[in-house]
Nucleic acid binder design. Structure first.
Lengths: 189, 189
DNA sequence: TCAATTAATTGACCATCGTTCAATTAAATT
DNA sequence: AATTTAATTGAACGATGGTCAATTAATTGA
């Protein structure tokens, strides 16, 4: 009701991000409004603009955290006790798994074309891709052209893109995802 | 200015589609408004709703035609004088070419997640895919699992998806597209 | 301690969107 | 010529993302 609430009740970036995450994940970027997020929090929509420049920046703040998660996932696979061939497959499958279990964020990371959102991306995306590429290169056992790794990535990307929003979780396409990984690995062996 | 203009100046579905096509292709589905289309035509925005139920249906009317174009393209490749291996590659490359030279429509055909638009699709998309799959199967020379063809398609799809809107035409990535086709063909040979 | 300053929140406001629909007028039908 | 039908208009609706003066709490300094 009143401007400037007592300090215990002050809105924080974290509070906004928590509310926004749920909505974005369940409804997708386009179908969540700033007013909905504010309502969820019990604040006016204007207040969000005090903490985030606009909707795209708010979403990107969430996405950044998810890039870290993707990096973490890769790291986890690498330190598993598996032979190289197995690890390599795990990386590919793990990438698909990540994409399908964080659909709304994957959309923003790699799918959204909006100029606005576009401007925020790229740093995180490139870093994540570099990690991916280097790991594949190391584990493949043979000299791979950078181009080949890129094409491999695009092929994984196609799988995720297609099943994003068609499917509700990775589990629904686990078998096909593994087949896709095998299919692609044939190209580099 | 007046309702019900003289019959020579009557608005037609074709007129609307022509104006809309240009706008959609240059700006993308999301960034074209019904008012813009109407303005382009010199009519009020309401008039479009007399000819099309809504924006999604208008767009889908355009997309249907592009599916026919895609089918035509496939047909053209098939009747070329090439050995099977060459034809197969041409199909893959041709698919990418089509996607990148009709970006805004490709988006709707295979990328858009909006419920509204979703409902209109599928018939055309499935038929086109069936054509693609059957051709690949015929030309591959060996018994391919349906699953393999599907994964091949998803891999092509990833390429198109990524370069859609990053690039302005197929020409800019011709070399890479051909490399992608070669890369994928290694998986089924 | 209390005035001045700063920080956080509000909600009216703007321009835009897709869509609906009563009113209007030209064309077609009787 | 009267009536019916078909096509077009533009005001209106309920949304959207975003801005900003006004307001009030917290903080700072004298």
């Amino acid at each position: 009701m009143s401007p400037r609430k007592s300090v215990q009740k002050e809105l924080t970036r974290e509070m906004i991000m928590d509310a926004a995450r749920d909505l974005f994940v369940s409804k997708g970027y386009q179908h969540v409004s700033m007013r909905q997020i504010a309502k969820e929090l019990g604040y006016s929509h204007g207040s969000i603009y005090y903490h985030f420049k606009n909707k795209a920046e708010l979403f990107y703040a969430l996405v950044e955290k998810h890039f870290e998660l993707l990096d973490q996932k890769l790291h986890d696979v690498l330190k598993q006790k598996l032979d190289q061939k197995e690890k390599l497959k795990q990386i590919l499958v793990g990438y698909i798994q990540f994409g399908l279990n964080h659909q709304s964020h994957y959309e923003i990371m790699f799918l959204i074309k909006d100029e606005e959102v576009r401007n925020f991306i790229n740093q995180g995306g490139n870093r994540s891709y570099e990690n991916f590429a280097q790991s594949v290169s190391l584990l493949s056992g043979k000299e791979l052209k950078v181009q080949e790794i890129w094409l491999l990535f695009l092929s994984l990307h196609g799988f995720v893109t297609h099943y994003c929003r068609i499917v509700n979780s990775y589990e629904e396409v686990r078998g096909l995802a593994e087949a896709h990984a095998d299919f692609l690995l044939k190209s580099i062996h």
